[in-house]
């Protein structure tokens, strides 16, 4: 495992499309639920415990068994009831695969996998292990939304990064759990849902005016 490779993969500047997505935050800002730092903290904590846990588990599993990308991809389909979120996840998976092809040698996989499955496949190609894939996935589910919070609400970027720092222990724990379950059957992998993320994504997709793709 190369720590430097993990940093390259998890770097927010990796050109993999993340900047265009708010991770569901824009919808909740518009709904009036998220106006300040505390609400961002609550949003991130809930997102990490749900979408973050699932993303970490699927990234770890795809890294451990990249040949099973198709069934893992279907597993995420069944965990993502919102068509808008499926679309956003696949768009980001496609962008990640595009970036990764210039970095490492990828096995033949579908063009637009769900992002966590793509992340696992890419991590494997980069010589990383399931736990590293999982920690990148868990961190990624919060860092994108945190960046969007700075842009949408004009929050103090230091304070927002303070939130991310306080979530690192949770990210590590989730990643360790994900790695321990990386060989589980697809139906047994975590499926923690977040109803407001689903509903918000569907409402967001109907807006005529929005800043983020999701």
């Amino acid at each position: 495992m190369s720590l430097a490779s993990l940093l390259v993969l998890a770097d927010g500047r990796l050109p993999s499309g993340g900047h265009a997505h708010s991770g569901g935050l824009e919808a909740q800002v518009s709904a009036g639920r998220v106006r300040d730092l505390d609400a961002v903290a609550g949003f991130l904590r809930g997102k990490l415990a749900t979408a973050g846990l699932v993303a970490a588990a699927f990234a770890a599993a795809s890294c451990a068994r990249p040949g099973e990308w198709a069934s893992l991809d279907q597993g995420l389909d069944s965990r993502t009831p919102s068509p808008a979120l499926r679309k956003a996840s696949r768009a980001q998976g496609r962008a990640l695969l595009r970036a990764a092809r210039a970095m490492w040698s990828l096995p033949p996989v579908g063009r637009d996998l769900h992002q966590p499955v793509a992340l696992g496949v890419v991590a494997h190609a980069g010589g990383l292990g399931p736990e590293e894939a999982a920690v990148a996935a868990a961190h990624g589910t919060t860092s994108g939304a945190a960046s969007a919070a700075v842009r949408l609400l004009g929050l103090d970027p230091y304070a927002v990064h303070g939130l991310l720092a306080r979530l690192t222990a949770d990210c590590d724990r989730i990643a360790a759990d994900a790695a321990a379950r990386a060989e589980s059957p697809v139906d047994d992998l975590p499926a923690a849902g977040a109803p407001l993320l689903d509903i918000g994504a569907e409402l967001h997709a109907t807006w005529e005016v929005r800043l983020f793709a999701s």
Partner: peptide, 15 residues
């Protein structure tokens, strides 16, 4: 959609 970053979408992350 460019997520508040039009220059990023055409230069830094063109995906």
């Amino acid at each position: 959609e460019t997520g508040c970053c039009p220059h990023t979408a055409i230069r830094d992350d063109i995906s």
